[in-house]
Amino acid sequence: MDEAANSPQLKPAPPERGRPEQTVRPDSELDRSVAFAAFYRNGWHDLVAFVMWLGANLQDAQNIAQETMTRAYSRWETIDHPKTWIRTVVSHEYGRSAFAVHDDPVDELPEMPDHGSDEVALFGQEQARVLDILPQLPPRQRQVMAWTYDGYAPAEIAELLHVEPNAVRVSLYEARQKLKERLAEEGGRPT
């Protein structure tokens, strides 16, 4: 497999606001394991949620997250911004797992992934509604939503997805609007 094609072409990660990422430069095998274990434990659930907001079902999200975490550990010393790196890779992997590879990760997302009714039931009524509606959004809107509600600003997302910041804001607006309308149609949440 071509490594270059398999790895996201990240621009230098933008400085993150709020809680800054720590650059990890372990100087021993054990330090490396400990640092990665902390990253895994602190970030696993958010990462799975991120993939689910991209449109994956729970099982796929967990599989992709685990595979990508494994890759992250194998090259841990070379990753300066693990949180951003791993989200970029899972985005790529999620698209690749369901469809043919395209160069633009935004276009890789499946159009209409399925959420199993059983697993949706696991998350309660409110989660079920959002998880049902999210996959109905166009791929780019889903991607922008996943990044946004993971704490990334439009300018950061634009840089990561190689699009204009305004395009991110438009996608974000349209996605929120669609969710707002759909949720209102289904009742149960204020408009």
């Binding site: 606001r17 949620a49 704490g151 439009p154 609007q177």
Partner: peptide, 21 residues
């Protein structure tokens, strides 16, 4: 999770944003 960041959150989306968050 960090708080979502949208510098230009329109007033009509404040509520849905909080809901999604």
């Amino acid at each position: 999770m960090n708080d979502p960041k949208d510098d230009d959150l329109p007033p009509e989306h404040v509520e849905i944003d909080a809901y999604l968050r």
